[in-house]
Design a protein around this nucleic acid. Structure first.
Lengths: 329, 329
DNA sequence: CTGAAAGCGCTTACAG
DNA sequence: CTGAAAGCGCTTACAG
């Protein structure tokens, strides 16, 4: 059994009130001698107040819940890392949960997090909450919820949007400058995410440069390495593309594997560009050029929002817009 | 303000005792009618007991702390994933913290986790705790601590050891069978980890096959991609090795990059073998053959230990031994 | 400068 | 079958 405030008070020869006040920096009125005596006993006994007892009064758990679709997905992981750094500096604990992309699991997790009284929730989700009354005011059972969904849902605390268009457009422009005329596209199959903006940028870039958009150059695939492998294999077999733009780094990795297996030389016979700019693109050789997400900025934005939402749950916040970037080096 | 048990009692026309008992499956003695009435009100109001108030009595947070040296290190991540799966099934929450390999940060985190009353702590650490009185009995301030350190520290709840020797030996044997006579070694520089067992297996395997151990074939490097790159670059420049055994997958990745930059063809001119068998080895092409850690088994072992330690903090447990494996396909 | 007392939301003997 | 009361460990008006 851990030691209690009562015991500390007894040992220091004061009342529990005194101990409590001194412990919580509200002891200005006590004599220096008393303060020292109490602090010494606290130190000696290595006492710290019972977390639950304090919280029942303070109603603060200093804990924030984060729901991500998949721990191994690098987009969310990279952002969560930033969020974590940011929020832990402020003395918050993070509980990170995995939803497997499923709306139902998100509900269960929201419920659980509410039960353990997290102070706020950051929800990475591919799902639409537009109709959800419970979450309409940015709250799930009184707890502020901030969406980290690239602007899919209109959050009460302002939407965080990412301009993907300009970065993708820039990447395509670069490929065209490099002399590529037949550029394949590996895009999502709209299973979880709809990466329409990236598709639009691809089309617009080709069009602006008088290139014809060939249906056969476009493959819709699950956003996985296997998806990329299969899509690229088909492109290599059926078309004459000399470059492939992948709407996701995992697709690009699969693409690399397919090019390798086809015996072609990367960057010489086939150039691959990815999207997200994750670590993995820097690990393989040759490095994958990839449109980079503003991870740091996004992490800060979400962390800021949840912090402000906790402090002022009724205050609405501005929308924020961030940009991806493309740098072929 | 969330609704309280008092309010539920009022709405159901019963006492708080009744509500509490029914809520905690101790309501056998109440009439079916009462039970239904109470449960209905609870449901209607979407009531759940205040987490802190319950815990102050139950003294259970259902939370477990996990300390890892580095979130992006794949060895610990892969195991934590298993631990998480296992423990969340049992209704525990995990709080995962990062120590940056530092003993001092571990101390701060242990302190913090104790303060928020986690029920147990799993400590991934490269540091020695042998002398640490506070943790001698497997506890830090009453909280059970299980070491996840490959058997470095002698834990109160039994040591989890990994036999690395046989797997590394097998890998070297395979290289020799493949005809390699000059095999380089990239090993740790003993900064955080001392991978002596892997080194021993390398030496023993060469010796058993009448191969001379050349000092120039062995490079000590930090366990990073950069370390692997630099070590391999030196080996390729200074020696005639046709294979390189890397004591860590990150070294192997760096190795791959160095071979690529040197213009040599992987698996034809240089064969690289790694250690850990992480995902990354399956992403690059050609795939990296790598000695595989028993992630699943390790995760289960740590999860089991902490669960039992929580339930029976004074019971000592058996040591456990797991094996790495090597399968060149 | 200090402390007795009420109260946070809950659970659990105990009495009827 | 049911509830009044004590108590968990703490904080916070309030009185002196």
């Amino acid at each position: 059994m851990a030691i209690t405030i009562k015991e500390i008070a007894r040992l220091a020869g004061v009342s529990v009130t005194t101990v409590s006040q001194i412990l919580n920096q509200k002891g200005g009125r006590f004599s220096e001698a008393t303060k020292q005596r109490v602090l010494t006993v606290i130190k000696e006994q290595n006492y710290s107040p019972n977390y639950f007892a304090s919280n029942i009064i303070a109603k603060k758990s200093k804990t924030i819940g984060v729901i991500v679709p998949d721990f191994s997905e690098q987009f969310a992981s990279a952002i969560v890392r930033e969020i974590k750094r940011h929020l832990e500096e402020q003395g918050y604990y993070l509980i990170i949960c995995e939803s497997d992309h499923e709306f139902e699991k998100e509900q269960v997790l929201l419920e659980q997090l509410a039960k353990i009284a997290v102070e706020g929730i950051i929800l990475f989700t591919p799902n639409l909450y537009d109709q959800d009354q419970r979450i309409r005011k940015g709250r799930y059972q009184e707890i502020p919820v901030v969406f980290a969904d690239r602007g899919l849902n209109e959050g009460y605390y302002g939407t965080v949007k990412i301009d993907e268009f300009s970065g993708v457009y820039r990447a395509l422009e670069w490929l065209i400058e490099e002399g590529h005329r037949r550029i394949g596209l590996l895009m999502d199959d709209a299973e979880h995410y709809h990466l329409a903006e990236r598709f639009d940028a691809y089309r617009q870039a080709l069009q602006d440069h008088q290139l014809i958009i060939e249906e056969t150059h476009i493959k819709q695939m699950p956003l996985t390495i296997e998806g990329g492998y299969q899509g690229a294999t088909e492109l290599l077999r059926e078309t004459e593309v000399s470059a492939i733009f992948c709407c996701d780094d995992m697709l690009a990795i699969g693409c690399y594997q397919a090019v390798f297996d086809s015996g072609r030389v990367l960057d010489q016979e086939i150039t691959v560009v990815g999207f997200d700019g994750g670590e993995v693109t820097q690990i393989v050789r040759p490095k994958i050029r990839s449109v980079r997400q503003p991870y740091k900025e996004l992490g800060n934005a979400y962390a800021d929002k949840i912090r402000m939402a906790i402090q002022q749950p009724d205050r609405q916040m501005d929308d924020r817009l961030f940009h991806v970037s493309f740098d072929p080096e």
